[in-house]
Design a protein around this nucleic acid. Structure first.
Lengths: 158, 158
DNA sequence: TTAGGTGCAAATTCTTTGCACCCTG
DNA sequence: CAGGGTGCAAAGAATTTGCACCTAA
């Protein structure tokens, strides 16, 4: 398993406590356990998975607390989401090899092309996971419209 | 707008008709319009957006037909999805710069590190979209377990 | 003490499904 | 003309919210 080291987990927990204190966010048992669960695994669980695992140690947590806590952690920069956060599935008819620019404020996603990027040299650690079909580069940034217009920004999660 | 050229759209439509015929999938008005909608835009719409736009031309389509058709097109390789298809939001406590290996069969996602990949040279076309915060590489492939065990594969969408 | 946080249950939102009728091949 | 495809309505999932009680600071 490619889980973070004990040391790394400790660092994450420390940062979590620090950020919570600075932001005046209460350190409850639930939050502690929910964060610990995400911090100590390398497999990027979804809310349901976190819920199941935390419940083993803390049988009274509720799923809605897990959701609330995960988004809270996300809003405070303690965790991130894989792929576009809180969005529905989006479709793409471009079958040619291409890459994406994604605006982290409004979600705008545009294709771009680069032969150089289509054929990246990958480190051994990446190849070790299995057979590789394709690599694609996701460029995260702020699109021109959002950069020029603060109001375009997505509302933070409360 | 970075939409595909008229010529490109025509090619996509032609491929669509060809694939449908080969797969014995009926070419209905609905499918034609739904595919056209995805094929002619560069903005990666979700099901709801496709529905709204198609309905302007074809006021009787239903949302469920849009869903069914999009997944059908996906299953036949005529379109793809952005990010992990049909999955819920997944969380990640790894704040260090890193990249992902994603198994296209089972969804396994693992981190890997590469200073070289952290600092890719991007083409001008990518920079033109706006301010760039970070780039991350997504390696798509088949993990070792799935490669060795066909049964692990995710069921195709019916 | 006291405002923020939690669990519960109900509400929403998004997506899928069953069924009778319709239309492509 | 036959069987796949569609629209409708209803079911199912996934996620969020209102509220009364609880608890960290």
């Amino acid at each position: 398993m490619a889980n973070p080291s004990k040391h790394e987990v400790k660092q994450r927990m420390a940062r979590f406590e620090q950020v919570c204190r600075e932001a005046r966010v209460r350190l409850t048992h639930q939050r502690l356990e929910i964060f610990r669960e995400v911090a100590q695994t390398g497999d990027h669980p979804d809310a349901e998975m976190v819920y199941k695992r935390v419940r083993e140690r803390m049988p009274t947590v509720s799923l809605d607390t897990v959701y609330r806590t995960l988004w809270l952690l996300n809003d405070h920069g303690l965790i991130t989401t894989l792929g576009p956060s809180r969005e529905r599935t989006r479709f793409d008819a471009n079958l040619a090899s291409h890459h994406h620019f994604v605006c982290i404020r409004c979600g705008l996603t545009r294709d771009f092309y680069s032969e150089e990027l289509d054929d990246l040299k990958l480190p051994r650690s990446a190849k070790a996971f299995g057979w590789i079909e394709a690599t694609l580069v996701e460029v995260r940034g702020v699109c021109r419209e959002c950069a020029g217009n603060t109001a375009t920004a997505k509302k933070p999660n409360k």
